[in-house]
Write a protein that binds this DNA or RNA. Sequence first.
DNA 1: GCATGATCTCGATCAGAAAC
DNA 2: GTTTCTGATCGAGATCATGC
Length: 337
Amino acid sequence: MAIAGQGVIMSKLSEKFAAGKKALAERQSAEAKDSTSPPSSFARAAGPLHGSVSTMKIDLLKAEIDALKAAKPVMKIHPSEIKASAWVNRHQDSFEVPEFAAFKAEIESAAGNIQPIKVRPLKSADTSGGAKYEIVFGHRRHRACLELGIEVNVIVDDIDEKTMFVEMDRENRERADLRPFEQGLMYARALDSGLFSSLRKLSEEIGADPTNISKAVSLARLPEPILDSFESRLDIQYRWASDLKAALEKEPELILARAADIKKQRSSGNHLSSQSAFNLLVGKVSSSSKPVARKVTVGKRVLTITERDKMITYEFDTLGREKLSKIEKFIASVMAE
DNA sequence: GCATGATCTCGATCAGAAAC
DNA sequence: GTTTCTGATCGAGATCATGC
């Protein structure tokens, strides 16, 4: 393990501080020598506050140095010594997209991650797997270094669970590349584990809108067969949450049967986008094609069958609960074939 | 520049629990 | 039984990004 970075930065800041101090002293000396020369633009603007502004600038530089003294050092650690956080939000699909391959290549060409990841030391009880640290944020950078077999630049900070979660979330949202499903998974875990007593408390702590958290959690809590019906879980969008949830509450068996059918279509080589899967699940029809409808008349009863894209809708004019139940069972048995 | 879609924000509303 | 509080969700409009 090697410590790098801080020494270099400290020395550069000290140089900056010394240079700034020297430049100000030279300017003050020159202006004092030549009282006839016009004051510098800085002095003109500062007016009577000239002297105190100079002091302020030195104070700012001092503060900058103090902040750096307080900052945690950057260290190089082998990625095998670091394990993913319990709140890890990255879905496996995130590491299989071209963007991650490009990201990995970038790290490889730079011989390491320029921006350090943040980790916290593991308690002795958690180190059974050989890991000594847990990631606070920077799962993708860690994963890239792990796959490349190179050391990863880290900042170690011994913070508590809640602080870790808040920092991880803030970093993710600032980066804005986390998908709704991943976000929801992270929030759902935090709520389920009791890290936050309620959705509202969670939203207050991380400074996010409860509506969005609610939508994200709804997505993450969809049943596995529904999640499996999408091409990738990362494609699932916030605005689908309410429709999927409502459909599941209204007709759970039908939606699950549709999910099973979508999975079957995929396994037989039929390509279906995640948007199409969503439309099929909730029974939405695309406006891209015209519906084809036909009517079947039996006595006084009329059945209307409408086909649009890959969606078929059956509409009965009048039907009792008992007969409807029979039809549902029949359709389910046909779909299960 | 415009249209469209995705996401965010805000206020309103509903449901359940606790207090009176 | 009612009132109040808290938590969760809904829906409309605003904002931003992207593609044509």
